[in-house]
């Protein structure tokens, strides 16, 4: 088992307690935990959509493959043009090949991290096949499995996701991440009325050594899926309150919950306005805007006759 600090760091990362993670002190640079902790902190910055923070954290000119990969991911996320992104993907491809050799700097764990990060970047770029290949079909790294599973879920292949999960269960029982994977699958495949995800998030909420608003949001989302709208709203509102602002995900879920069987239509609309101005790139915003354009186009399919009025 890895050391307690690293364990905490990992758990915090998996359960999306990014701010907690960032606020933790780095171990001594000679410690074996130093590189992994640094990588996780950098990844937490990236997850919080602050790639600059990640880059500033990383020591320049490090030869460590994991650090190089993370830095690439940070740059990839901050790049907006595909022309900027493509060379970074190339860089990651090279790294993924490099780690097959023996003469690179970094532990086995670092090499696995490279795969996970490269896979993440490829998946973001929509290169599904390449991502899956990089992560490896026989991998025994649970983080890689988490990425693989989510990729499968995002392309509506819960069957493959389940297979990966069953495979991972053989060697990684009891890991928090495995439970998270299971609950994600449950959310997409809607098994047992979402009870597994619900109890997983409820359990994690009761975990005294960690507190993450993401978990609260996740349970709120689960409760929406379970059609427990008032309970969902209370989770989401608490999450918003505790975040003192609200991330896109919580806000988006609030919009959704507020709209379901709403007594007051304006509540959802106010939230929506807030979401679409604060987080214009959230998939919900993008998607709905696209649907809005679609609607306008479709309207023209139906010619509107003149209004019937008394002569």
């Amino acid at each position: 088992m890895s050391s307690s600090d690293l364990y905490n760091t990992k758990t915090a990362f998996f359960l999306s307690a990014y701010q907690t993670l960032i606020n933790r002190a780095l171990p001594d640079s000679s410690s074996p935990d130093y590189i992994p902790t640094l990588v996780y902190q950098a990844r937490a910055h990236i997850a919080l959509n602050d790639p600059a923070g990640a880059i500033s954290l990383l020591p320049p000119n490090s030869e460590n493959v994991a650090l190089k990969a993370v830095s690439a991911l940070a740059r990839y996320v901050s790049a907006t043009e595909s022309s900027e992104q493509e060379p970074i993907l190339e860089e990651l491809r090279d790294l993924a090949v490099e780690i097959e050799g023996d003469d690179v700097e970094g532990t086995e764990h670092d090499k696995l991290t490279v795969r996970v990060i490269a896979g993440t970047a490829f998946a973001r770029a929509g290169e599904i096949e390449e991502a899956l290949e990089t992560l490896g079909s026989e991998t025994e790294d649970l983080e890689a499995v988490a990425v693989i599973v989510q990729i499968y879920l995002s392309i509506n292949r819960p069957d493959r996701a389940k297979k990966e999960f069953e495979r991972a269960k053989n060697w990684a029982e009891d890991d928090v991440l495995l439970q998270l994977i299971e609950s994600s699958i449950g959310l997409v495949a809607a098994r047992d009325g979402y009870s597994n995800a619900n109890s997983f998030y409820t359990e994690q909420l009761a975990n005294p050594s960690l507190s993450s608003t993401h978990i609260l949001t996740a349970r709120g989302v689960t409760r929406i899926l379970r059609n427990e709208i008032p309970a969902a709203k209370s989770d989401l509102e608490e999450s918003l309150e505790r975040q003192k602002g609200g991330d896109a995900e919580t806000l988006a879920a609030c919009v959704v919950a507020a709209g379901i069987d709403a007594k007051k239509s304006n509540e959802a609309d106010e939230l929506w306005t807030r979401l679409s101005t604060e987080h214009p790139s959230h998939p919900l915003v993008v998607d709905v805007e696209q649907k809005s354009r679609l609607f306008d186009e479709l309207c023209s399919n139906f010619p509107v006759p003149p209004l019937a009025v008394a002569a």
Binding site: F13, S16, Y18, R43, A44, I46, A47, L73, V77, T120, A123, R124, A146, V147, Q150, I151, S154, L180, I181, S183, S184, L187, T217, A218, V221, I224, L225, E249, A252, A253, V256, H282, P283, L284, D287
Partner: peptide, 11 residues
């Protein structure tokens, strides 16, 4: 539809 990000940095 609602959205959730279980794994960091993935959509």
């Amino acid at each position: 539809h609602t959205y959730l990000t279980p794994v960091a940095s993935l959509p």
